[in-house]
Amino acid sequence: MRRLQCRGVAVLLLFGLLGAVRFAWAAADTVVVGGDVAEIVAELGRTEVLVGRDDTGVYPAEIALLPSVGYLRRLSAESVLSLGARRLLVSDAAQPRETLAQLEASGVEVVRIDAGQDFDALERKVRQVATALDAKAQGEGLIARLDEQRARVEGLAPLHSRALFILGHGGAPMVAGRGNSADAAMRLAGLDWRPDFSGYKRVGGEALVALAPEVVLISPIGLEALGGEEALWRMPGIGMTPAGRERRYIEVDEQALLGFGPRTPEAILALHAALAEDEAGR
């Protein structure tokens, strides 16, 4: 009798184990595309459903460890299918559209997530991801936390610096104008001044002098790409700007600040604090 019981327990255990494996295997079927979307999935504690990410999904570490299906704007259907994905959580910024259509035709469930660059959009992103992942409670928790940060961001005092966001280099530096995510994040941080063009443009030495930035915003990656701080100040023209003369720059976490994901409100608060300190020290 006892032996039978033992065997019963063993069988049950085995089934249970198999079931768990089966469940895990069945559950991990999602590829996430878009760094902000990936961060939200991680924030909701549902990374176990993921089998892949795209190149922009680099945070947190558990996301970065997943195999990548390529770059957000150059998605290929085959690399998504090769991971056995049955569902795609995809930022609306993803390209090309045809790939998404191909995936849908191959029976992959394509869930499009808002790609907006403001707090309302962020909230929508969280809701959409939470709904798709069946994690509504965690979603509401995250939204409540973001709302609290949003209130703090919206209460920030305006700043007066002429802050220039330098994205990268190659010939002339690529500088952020208006109507892009850097513009949105800087506006929320209380910064009003921006170069008078849309998108990101290369700006030559003389134009840099004319823009007369008082402080440079640059990501650690961007700074490294230039070849360090010394190389930043060696760029043509920058030495003749107020920022260059006093060597004022602030490192910003590009991914967190510009992604409009769960870390963005914090990054905006941090940027404001750094800028306010910089203004006070002038």
């Binding site: 990268g168 190659g170 010939g171 790409a225």
Partner: peptide
């Protein structure tokens, strides 16, 4: 690497912008 890529992008389109 990303860093090298940005240096490379210079060779895409000629420019005299970094004449020092």
């Amino acid at each position: 690497s990303d860093e090298q890529l940005r240096q490379l992008s210079l060779w895409g389109m000629g420019s005299l912008a970094h004449a020092l």
